[in-house]
Design a protein around this nucleic acid. Sequence first.
DNA 1: ATAGGGTTAG
Length: 847
Amino acid sequence: MRDALSILASATVPPSSAPPPGHYRHPHRQSTTSTTAKPQPHPNPKHNKPQFPTYSPLLSSYRRDNRQSLTYNTELASKLAEDGMFEDFLMISESVVASGVKPSEFLALLNAKCVAIGVARVLDEGNLHSVVKMLFNGLEKIGIDPVQMFDAVSTESLRRECRRLLKRGEVEQLVSFMETLAGFKFQIRELVEPSDVISLCISQRDPTAAIRYAQNFPHMEIMFCSIILEFGKKRDLASALTAFEAAKQNTSTPNMHAYRTIIDVCGLCGDYLKSRTIYEGLLAGNITPNVYVFNSLMNVNSRDLNYALGTYKKMKKLGVTAEITTHNILLKSCCVAAKVELAQDIYKEIRELESKGALKSDVFTYSTMIKVFADAKMWKNALEVKEDMVTSGVIPDTVTWSSLISACANAGLVEQAIKLFDEMLEAGGQPNSRCFNILLHACVEACQYDRAFRLFKSWKERGSEQTTSDNNLNSSDDSLAVHHTRVTSRPYSHLTTGVPFRPTTSTYNILMKACGADYYRAKALMDEMKTLGLSPNQISWSTLIDVCGGSGNVAGAIQILRSLHETGIQPDVIAYTTAIKICVKHKKPKLAFMLFAEMKKYEIKPNLVTYKTILTARSRYGSLQEVQQSLAVYQQMRKAGYKPNDYYLKQLIEEWCEGVLQNEHHNEGQFASRITDFGPQSMLLEKVAEHLQDSNAESLSIDLQGLTKVEARIIVLAVLRKIKEKYIAGNSMEDDVSIILGLQELGSDFIKGESDGVKEAVIRLLEHDLGLQVFAAGSRSGRGKGSRMYSSSIGETIERSESKQASESPTRRPMVLQRLKVTRESLHHWLQKKMESSPLSITVTTQ
DNA sequence: ATAGGGTTAG
């Protein structure tokens, strides 16, 4: 009591004296009381009601008489609390308790409503945290349980504050508040819905706050898992991982649930490698993952069949029992990898385990297996699985039926698909949009476009009938069925499904494809889709481009692509590839290349299909520039990591190169080489591309090292063709053409291998076929000595030259880079001759 | 707590 009073007294002394030692004072209050002893309006302008002033008569009277009644003191405390002056409230409270009043007694006498108003006031002032903490600490020190002091009304003001912070998105404030309240044993779950707090943390990408909040709950592990999962759903792997690490720190025993959750999240975020790292972390810590962790790991990595199988083995080795889900995931993995046989083996194994009672196949097992066969177009096997299923007493669900129908659709069996659809209805199955779509697609795949439209129309009509007149269902049902039976002589029960039909964007996309080349019909479908509140997706646009182009309207197709940009939709690779295909199909290679350049401008990466499509744009050789263009595409393709095994381009290059010979009197129409002679790993196209690059224009050196005869021939011809094109364009030859053959040990034959016969083949081509002059030019011997014009007897010349060189150095035979030189003069002569025999070329030059 | 079905380009 004395202590409290002296503190109280010090609060009123002028600023010249020592600052008040009160530990209840927060900085703000301290400054106002120390700078002025005079009354002063509350610093918060919104706060109209003046605070309980330090000079108030109540306090003065208190100072005058220490021995006032308990009632008076509690009234005073309530009043102070009501005005939000909790420092003073605490002083009074402390003095009351110090005078021997039991905290619970004091508490009972306090006006709870005043406390509630005061709490609300303090919270409104915005200095929530420190004030609440100060108050609670003070209460605790006195021996009053803060929770006890908060009745329904004041708790409601806490709750209101929580809602306000939540609405404002003040995560830090809210979570700190929660921590404080939880520290005083408040049931924070009752103040604010935990999922709302977590959601706020997730939306603000604040995993730390979420974890801090979760730590206040007895079942924090479960909350950690939901935090990890929620971040995953937001595709925020980094935050999910932070939450996961925190979860690990907070639990003494490894939380398998958290492990499997983070692994699932890795899958959601597309980072399957990370899931492996996490799993390896478990193994490294000598912790055996449970079956859920293994299932999740296998599922996330199901695109990598070997990994999934390896994990399965590891799991067995560690003594973890695989369950049906584990096997289902393995089947899925096989399905993705299109490994039908392996899937069959696993399926057999499952059935064997089942016969032993170790396992029970479920609807997932059968549906997945049906999908395996559906993808492989093995519809009969798919139907067999259905029989297995029926004998095992497992009821097919919508997904099972859909997969079965899809199996027939993929095999082009419309009738069978419809039969299954009917069977499904008879069995009481409820088709959904996906199922309807599969059936429509079955018709489209089999080019039964009319049928697709008829089905669509009947389903739509049925849908509206059901919504308008449910009572007339039966009569209209029958008449409709009978009508169709008469027209088409089939039982068509699928027209009367009794299930509402809700078309989706996919439905419309499938139907748009069924429009064939009828652009206006496809366009009308797209409009209809929009009126139903469905939005066209990338597939819709690509299909529309395809239909438009297919109708012969290339400009229209490109226009659609452009309009996509204008409406803020980024066309995807497929939209561009489709447009490029249209250009190629309508023999507009320039447009195709323009679109190809455009897509790259928009940073849309071409894929294998795009490259293959664009490379078919030039089916016949044209100008050097055009060949260069194709070759540039080829090089990009290689750079992007696609296999360089393109038949079209090789053919194009070969044709273009051999074109050099077209005007020679021999070789008419006959290629000396065949494209099939190129090895699969051939660097030919790379080399040709290199030689034809404009940057290489002045370099007249051809390196034939490591090439086969056929390849060497193509390269030489390519360079000659380039020279010819340049010549026609007005660029004359400045130098000899140098051909590098390879290293040769002096006096010996060429190093045996692929280069065998290259020299002879090249010389034959140049001298015999083209009538050019060729010199041998070993780099060691120089022009005067080693160079020798080849005569008609090539072999003899070489032999003489070689034996002479050999005798010069009998003991040590150095390596020499063998070269050939084609003289500038003979090239000029050849070009001249070609101009004469090719009037078109002359026309080009004179223009 | 995990697993299965539909539509676009070569």
